[in-house]
Amino acid sequence: MKSLSWLIGLLIVIGAIPMITHDVTLRETVFIILMYIALAESLNIILGYTGYVSFGHIVFYGIGGYVAFLMIQNYGLNIIPAMILAGLFSALVAYCLGLAILRLRGAYFAIATIGVNEAVKALITNLEQVGGAEGIYFNIKVYSAYGGAEHAIWLSYYLMLAVTIAVVIVSWFVKKSKFGLGLMAIREDEDAAITLGVNTSKYKTLAYALSALFPGMIGAIFFFKNGNIEPESAFHLTKSIEMIFMVMLGGFGTVTGPMIGAIVYERIRGFLIVSEMFKALHIAISGIILLLIVLFMPRGIIGFVRDKIPALRRFVE
């Protein structure tokens, strides 16, 4: 429990700073950090615990975004139920999809997930009913239900903080549960896991659905705040790669790792994107760093620390 409580404590501290200072720029930065943490922690459930590299994981964020956006725009639903519906819908899509593509292993699964993302993007782009390639914009009146745009943005911020905390708690409990043990057995050796009695296909599918639930909710919040949604930004494959980067950088299969990875990545990105020299190169540089991590620190920052200082293991999950 100790390792969980300090993680939650850290999140609350990070989340509280913009609330206290009312600094809008800082709020935007923290919003992005929280979003990255939540996305990375979600991906970690399938990638880190179960060992399946979901390369196109951003598809669930996009689906969630579209579901919530349409619910709010067309039916005047409040963002909170819309967000929950979006998450559940993403999870359902992942569940059905998982039944098919989780039969594939290794690189084949990774490629299939990219295909799914691109297919959904192409579908939405060609579907005029949901805005097609140009996407959809909120009617400005949408925000008046929340007391104006400024209030809506703050509400998005609180929701993002709440979802992020929820993801970390869920990740921690999954890791400590029998379900988590089964997932890790699958990651280490799926054939051994099934002969030991793990219902591998059920476990994999549930893990995939769970890892899609939160990205759906995060997409809902992000695009609600954004005020517009279009296929290019909702199903942006680069974001998928960023998610993998954060998980690998921090340490896959740990709870702390993706969080650290997300914070470090946001800082690197923030630094590179404003620097005159590197602004077009931040993905390339991230790619090089990812290569170096995989080669020299395959278990990421947290894995490295846990290896070097075993005494920390009890406090760092």
Binding site: K178, L181, G182, M184, R187, D189, G197, G253
Partner: peptide, 25 residues
């Protein structure tokens, strides 16, 4: 077929958790 990144005890717990008795952790 050891589960390399799990401890020896965790390896054995997988057997106990998912075997005939389907025990809790």
């Amino acid at each position: 077929k050891p589960l390399n990144e799990l401890t020896v005890k965790e390896n054995v717990m997988v057997g106990a958790c998912f075997g005939r008795e389907y025990l809790d952790l």
